[in-house]
């Protein structure tokens, strides 16, 4: 990454294009850089620090299309002070953005391979840029699967888009929920149950996994059973990133700072850490 000329702790101003409600507690916010001219580029998996004046900053993964240079998109679960305020923003209002920061999913390096994307809950958000990329360059990849688990059918993100992708027949999409009522026609069961239902060649597949830590651990076990190597699995870790650039120490995770060495890690690099309590 290039050295930034301005102070990396000072945000750039972006304006809200629109706020889209996704689920009961999740929304997508689209932002436009205020200077209008410069675009914005990021790699799938990276995050930014979003800042609301008077409330503070939060790290949020970018969930939009990497090819869309003029619009910066985030999908956010409204659970804290700042995210609640973000949800209330109206078109035209300004917020601060720092970033993009952090590591990316190995999208390019996965060309020519089977790509399995496993997402749990809001974990689909940082993987959506991967989907945009691989689907745009569909021919460069072998089989592509998306396994997605949420709590209930109401929690499924990007419903329309999932339908659209599903109908393209060039990606194998499986969605499951932990809990559902009688009218639900889809799968019920945790996301790990989906792994046995998809086809991939474990000698050349790559798995990109994002979700709660427990979900990722069980997913990894399942993949190992199917013969995938630790080096072929990637996870996105979560800690409390505050500065985003390794200055503040908050997101330390063993020998890493999640903000600059992560959030995406090759699994073998964090395998030991994931087993340590209170690391």
């Amino acid at each position: 990454m290039a050295r930034s000329k301005t102070d990396p702790m000072t945000p750039a101003i972006f304006h809200v294009k629109r706020v889209i409600r996704e689920t009961e507690d999740t929304f997508t916010i689209e932002l436009i850089p205020s200077n209008g001219t410069t675009g914005f580029s990021f790699k799938p998996g990276q995050f930014t620090m979003l800042y609301v004046l008077g409330a503070g900053e939060v790290p949020i993964s970018i969930s939009g299309d990497p090819f869309e240079k003029r619009c910066l998109t985030h999908t956010i679960r409204s659970v804290g002070n700042v995210t609640r305020l973000l949800q209330k923003l109206k078109a035209g209002e300004g917020i601060g953005v720092r970033g993009p920061f952090g590591s990316a999913w190995p999208v390019k390096a996965s060309q020519g391979r089977d790509v399995i994307i496993v997402a749990g809950g809001i974990g689909l958000a940082p993987l959506r840029p991967v989907l945009y990329t691989v689907l745009k360059n569909r021919k460069k990849y072998n089989r592509i699967s998306l396994l997605y688990g949420t709590r209930t059918p109401e929690d499924i993100l990007y419903h329309q888009e999932l339908m659209k992708w599903r109908s393209q027949f060039d990606i194998d999409i499986h969605v499951t929920v932990d809990q559902a009522g009688k009218s639900w026609k889809g799968n019920v069961g945790v996301v790990t149950t989906l792994i046995s239902r998809i086809a991939f060649d474990s000698t050349q597949a790559v798995a990109l996994i994002c979700g709660p830590e427990v979900m990722m651990r069980f997913t990894i076990q399942e993949f190992r059973q199917r013969g995938l190597n630790n080096e072929d699995m990637y996870v996105s870790m979560e800690r409390n990133m505050k500065c985003g650039i390794g200055f503040c120490g908050h997101c330390q995770y063993g020998p890493y700072f999640i903000c600059k060495d992560g959030p995406v890690f090759r699994y073998d690099l964090v395998e030991d850490l994931m087993k340590v309590e209170e690391i």
Binding site: G121, R151, D155, D178, Q179, T192, P212, M215
Partner: peptide, 10 residues
């Protein structure tokens, strides 16, 4: 699977 569901990880 039941245990994982019970954890309500999301």
């Amino acid at each position: 699977v039941a245990r994982l569901q019970f954890l309500d990880v999301y």
